[in-house]
Amino acid sequence: MQEVRLEVNGKRISKDVPDQTLLSELLRDILNLTGTHIGCDTSQCGACVVHVDGKSVKSCTVLAADINDSKITTIEGLSQNGKLHPMQEAFKKHHGLQCGFCTPGMVMSAIDLLKNKKNPSDQEIRDWLEGNICRCTGYQNIVAAVKEAANKS
């Protein structure tokens, strides 16, 4: 067992977990933060993307024990006092989601893009989202949403 101390969405937590526990398992099964989804076994789909110390990672490919003392932000931690994050707001406005399954990872990834690049071009947005697969939207409205969020921030 490993003692894992983290700050998750602004809240300090400490849990004893088996050594092999993945961050995605800690979030979903232990902390009941089921907004982080699992869509594949090969770290390709991106439904599980969360932020570790502000950077987007695939939580299905990170051990919980490996990121001790980090700050984690998940999709559940974005909106503040009931107000949606500008990226969430933009996804809603531009219909950047349909079934909603890839959405948490997509939003977390897109937020990280804007940290790295303030005003990305369409192509830069599309390139960045290489690690997030969406089967519903055809991506066009996601790109529009990310652009809008970039313009607003």
Binding site: D19, D41, C60, T61, L63, D66
Partner: peptide, 25 residues
């Protein structure tokens, strides 16, 4: 264990098994 980008999926898919992972980061 460094980034774990290959090691962890391989364990997950039961294509590899180890007694210990030594994190060197």
């Amino acid at each position: 264990l460094a980034g774990g980008m290959t090691t962890l999926p391989a364990i997950k898919l039961r294509m590899a098994a180890y007694s210990d992972l030594i994190d060197i980061k």
